[in-house]
Amino acid sequence: MANKISINVNGKMHTGAIEARKLLSDYLREDLSLTGTHIGCDTSSCGACTIHLDGKAVKSCTILAVQADGCSVTTVEGLATNGELHPIQEGFKEEHGLQCGFCTPGMMMTATDLLKSNPNPSEQEIRDALEGNFCRCTGYHNIVKSIQYAAKKMA
């Protein structure tokens, strides 16, 4: 059965009719072709699908698209403004915080949420905050440095 939804994604309103069972991650990827949000697991563990829902980092694979009706969503595609990289994007580039790039969007969305509540996190606080984001390439070493870079830049 189709459910009408209206969602603001990266500042743009999207309305449509979807199945109730459609996950927000699938809605973003399939219906809106915003494929920067990735799906890496079935168990809400890996964090590759992390987006901001009303300003907070959430795992879009564990939210129904219908639940996002009336909400505002930011995906990785919405991080940069007017072609200018967000400091977190700049940090990941400068500190080589990404290799294959698959976990990167989720990492950055979690990191920006962290920096909102804790603008100057310690290394341990950063590592703890990444509990819900898996990376197989970097050993997390440069991801930590990337977030430190962004924190400094945003201070």
Binding site: T35, G36, L98, F102
Partner: peptide, 19 residues
């Protein structure tokens, strides 16, 4: 040298098979 391929991944423009 900073990676030339980074920008597409950082902005969600990487194209993986499922995309």
């Amino acid at each position: 040298v900073k990676r030339l391929e980074d920008k597409r991944f950082l902005t969600g423009q990487g194209k993986y098979t499922d995309d």
